[in-house]
């Protein structure tokens, strides 16, 4: 214990970036929650172990309503790690902290406690975050995506030469191309890209989503099952079309 006190070392704060999903509640909240329940019942574990942010930008909500909403989400085991777009007056100390738009983070060193230690620690300026690349990066997967595997690629498009199993999941910032059977879940355009599309050569999906708009297996037209299809957004409408 004493040695800890006499030899102060800077605590290292390491940058971590996660792809968080943002929930954007809408009025009336009852309906919105009902929709959320619907989604959760269609795809179990949808919200488990995934960073979630509540985006209340532009939403008419007061502190007690927000607290109630957080409670309702808590009852559903939906744990919110931060709140985006909230006026400071809206947030109480018992609520998740405010957050701003996520950026790639580099390692950060906490300030040392005194000069002596600071002098001993070779100071390395945190590298500036790289400028956004001009080309759009893509990820190529040449094997089946198995049940229980989750692929996160917020940077761009994902191409899978193989199938995506029931219980597997792909989350991409851009479009998703699947040359085998899609049995699991695919979320494209998750960083707010409404022009992203989903393509698969055989549709058996549990869930497909583009830029937050989603369809579950139940919502999908029966005659599209087993077909080669694509999904895209036209404004707020989720479109499906045969590729054949």
């Amino acid at each position: 214990m004493t040695s800890l006190l006499t030899q102060p070392r800077p605590i290292r704060l390491k940058g971590r970036s996660f792809l968080a999903l943002a929930l954007t509640p809408e009025h009336p909240f009852e309906d919105w929650l009902a929709q959320l329940d619907h989604l959760a019942s269609r795809s179990t574990n949808f919200f488990r172990r995934r960073p979630l942010v509540l985006d209340v930008t532009g939403l008419e909500i007061d502190r007690s309503q927000l607290r109630e909403l957080l409670d309702k989400l808590g009852e559903r085991n939906v744990r919110i790690m931060g709140i985006e777009g909230a006026r400071p007056s809206l947030l109480g100390p018992d609520m998740p902290p405010p957050m701003a738009d996520g950026r790639p983070a580099s390692d950060i060193e906490a300030p040392a406690e005194d000069e002596r230690v600071e002098a001993k620690t070779p100071e390395k300026a945190a590298p500036p975050s790289p400028p956004p690349p001009k080309t759009s990066p893509s990820m190529l997967v040449t094997e089946p995506v198995r049940s229980g595997q989750a692929l996160f690629f917020p940077e761009g498009d994902v191409t899978v030469v193989g199938s995506v199993a029931s219980g597997a999941e792909i989350i991409a910032g851009g479009s998703v191309h699947i040359y085998g059977t899609l049995r699991g879940r695919v979320m494209a355009g998750t960083m707010g890209n409404g022009s992203a599309r989903i393509f698969c050569s055989k549709l058996e999906a549990e869930l497909v989503a583009i830029d937050g708009y989603y369809k579950t297996a139940e919502d999908l037209e029966r005659d599209l099952r087993g077909k080669a299809v694509q999904f895209w957004l036209e404004g707020d409408t989720f479109k499906v079309g045969s590729l054949a």
């Binding site: 094997e143 198995r146 049940s147 229980g148 595997q149 199993a165 029931s166 219980g167 597997a168």
Partner: peptide, 12 residues
Amino acid sequence: VRDSDRIIGLLD
């Protein structure tokens, strides 16, 4: 079958 698929993922 689904559990086997999961196991294959772990094997890999």
